[in-house]
Nucleic acid binder design. Sequence first.
DNA 1: AAATATAACGAAAACGGTTTCGTGTTGATA
DNA 2: TATCAACACGAAACCGTTTTCGTTATATTT
Lengths: 339, 339
Amino acid sequence: MKAKITLKDIARELEVSISTVSKALKNSEEISRDTKEKVQAFAKLYNYKPNNIAISLKNKRTKNIGVVIPDIVHHFFTTVIRGIEKYANARGYNVIVCLSEESFDKEVINMEMLANGSIDGFIMSLSSETQQKGDYNHLKEVTAQGIPVVLFDRITHEVDCDKVIIDDELGAYQATKKFIDQGKKRIALITTENYLSVSEARTKGYRKALGETSMGIDESMILKMSSMEMDEASIKNFLNTKKPDAVLCVNEIFAVYSMRLVQEKGLRIPEDISFIGFTDGVLSRYANPSLTVVAQHGEKMGEESAKMLIDKVESEAEEETYQTKILEPTLVIRDSIVH
Amino acid sequence: MKAKITLKDIARELEVSISTVSKALKNSEEISRDTKEKVQAFAKLYNYKPNNIAISLKNKRTKNIGVVIPDIVHHFFTTVIRGIEKYANARGYNVIVCLSEESFDKEVINMEMLANGSIDGFIMSLSSETQQKGDYNHLKEVTAQGIPVVLFDRITHEVDCDKVIIDDELGAYQATKKFIDQGKKRIALITTENYLSVSEARTKGYRKALGETSMGIDESMILKMSSMEMDEASIKNFLNTKKPDAVLCVNEIFAVYSMRLVQEKGLRIPEDISFIGFTDGVLSRYANPSLTVVAQHGEKMGEESAKMLIDKVESEAEEETYQTKILEPTLVIRDSIVH
DNA sequence: AAATATAACGAAAACGGTTTCGTGTTGATA
DNA sequence: TATCAACACGAAACCGTTTTCGTTATATTT
């Protein structure tokens, strides 16, 4: 077990000072060719690599970014992480992932753990509990300390920081509009409670599209699920009583499950009833029929978030100017609607 | 923007030495009650938190663990990460996630980045390219440096370290046995090239189960896909010509896609043809019909890996004794087989 | 030959902690 | 009253770098 070699080791071995070694390895003009070659050869031979921690302490830069998300077993978040990872890695940053598991306390604890020097900045998406409580003091403290934060997808306007979202309202609007244009008359929405910023925006888009028609908005065609978990019975009941001819769902799972229910009833998709979901995940792609979705471009979102964060981290300027980047969703047409 | 406060700041403000502050905050017996109270009150007031980086440098312990996996957009890996995260967090560790994207080079680069002090140990699953090349020098170097490594799922026996795997052979054996017991006569396997250690083990289990019957093994009933990507045409052709009455697939996607193909042909699942896949992901759960799978217990695997790693990291003893933990897979019965 | 420039290197501070080893003061003991 | 513990604290080393600012020689200029 050959332990890592340090500058001090090289200095001792070559009988020069630590400073000389450090400079020699950086190809400093101060050092003679002879010495540089000697030092560099020795360093290469013993596979010297500078200690990241020491450099971090010196520079007050860790080259780590902290990502705090509610869950990782969701396709959307997973693609965002991938986007962050790719971009951050390309710029020499590592990604520390923390899971809040939709819990306010865990979110706070994770941030505190990381905020004490472990990271240069945060990229995060709020836990549902945090959005429910509306308590953003942990975020405010971190930003007050001068640690840059980028919020994505599940954001709040109460914190001054950079943000990346997709235009959820537009996505829902376009999807609903699609149904309307196809002559659908009983367009339902299956969503979650409004404390999730995204659900709220999607509901708004749905309302807007319907509000522009002569049909208007029928509140009873909106089903609000109380949690992210599936309440299968209430979906079943909703579909049976309201008999929609088109359903917009705020996620894949609601949509896929609903499709199955109506198929069991003998309805044909998309002729008798059409479906559009949110999130372009593996479920939509392999569902039967395949599900038309509003794609959120998670990977793009991750890249953008990472870019904004790292740019801010590396900018000397202490501008207190924050921007919100709004990505456009895309309707991915598949077999759950006529086309 | 109130920057973080340091020991030095407190010392200056309270007109004591840095050592006194440090000891006072640790409730050292050396320091008088008066001083301790004064220091602690001040620290609390200004929300002092020790700098992780400085502590890491001093202790040569980062409390970070590096996780290097091929991909994150796979349900299995995602659950493993969740398991690692939960366990590691509970023991005060953070998780740095790096993606090799199935590339040998990226795997090497990622490890090198982290091995220079950023982490206390590695948890990893090999990229397919690494398994193909059979080049494990990057792993050997890291272990030679005394950095503990835990390999999970996609492992190699060429590196001496702790390992966590599920008994893939057993899983495939049990699944195949299930088909046999149900009287299936034409049992097919859809797998990938053998360089993936898991595919190899699964194929072995399939062979073993069939070898124990009078049917024996029909090599033509095994379809080897050349990559992880779907080659839809070859699956279609395979199913049409071989006409199996049961299919074991080494992942969810092959299975779900195959089910759709045979349904289009008018076959009934599970009566005419049954399916079992690997990986208990969201796809299996919401497929129509729902897919019976060999569950790999990713979360458990993650926990075990994290436990093994952290135990090793924190053990003073320099034992060079490594263990391999084998988890038992479970057959999750759903509607794609008769039951 | 004296003054000055330059090349090549080292000492030391700094980053923010922890920890060992003094050291000065007080009170108790001989 | 001299001696010795105990107490409460500080100085300094250390972790591994980077970087500034000397400090020597040697070479160049006048």
